[in-house]
Amino acid sequence: MFKHVGIVGAGTMGSGIAQVVALSKIDVALYDVNDTLLRQGIERIRADFRKAVERGKLTQEQLTETMERIRSRTSLSELTSCDLIIEAVIEDLRVKKDLFKHLEQNSKATTVLATNTSSLSVSSIASGVSKQERVIGMHFFNPAQTMKLIEVIRGEQTSEAVVSSAIEFVKHIGKIPVRVKDTPGFVVNRVARPFYGEALRLLGENVASVEQIDRITKVIGGFAMGPFELMDLIGIDVNFSVTQSMYEQYFGEPRYRPHPIQKRMVESGMLGKKTKRGFYVYDDKI
């Protein structure tokens, strides 16, 4: 079992993962190239724990104890004692590949190197590492603190021992693992595609309105949110780029083809809730 876990990248995902791991009594080394981001990440964790204390879900002692288990690191060479390193940096293949080369140099030969990528190929991220069998995908969902699922992705050369140890680790930190082959979109992003894609097609073909499609999927389908509400929440730009990336990775498979409606909305800056304009209008006052 991993006793010491390194996390690279102290953004929303990285700090969320650090929080989850530390809560299961495992020592965490949280690294970020950017000192300010690192401090902000630690503060985010502390603020989240404080809220938990206020709600009576955590004692003050547990807070102190858990925070002590998380150490900030500003140099990769400080991660050499880790048994597992989870990368949660920007979704950019070049950046990730480069980072994994550095992680290889700054870790023991037995250390498992995991990527939290949601859309890139694990095998491709691993390709710069000389012992690719120890590279694996561990796809946490946002927010990492509350989402139970982790997709454990086996790259082309990942060893079965590494997969098993990753699955054991996921269970240990209270999450639910699913074994996934390294294919574009893995399971969740792939199987969720038609929820958005067909809704956009239905809208484009004037079969029903945005409001009607959302209402039908929620009331008859039992979905918590309609596809358009959800795209507005995720960000129409983010949703569009995931779709486009899958479409390209599957060499133009028509099931993943993006819709012109998405593209036009992104072009006009209607990105959903974050810009107050998307499929719906979000005005504070009307």
Partner: peptide, 19 residues
């Protein structure tokens, strides 16, 4: 062969909040 049927079901419920 991306995942087993059981794991696909679990993934969509837990990861995408499908009912």
């Amino acid at each position: 062969d991306v995942a087993t049927p059981k794991d696909i079901d679990a993934a969509m419920k837990l990861g995408a909040n499908h009912p």
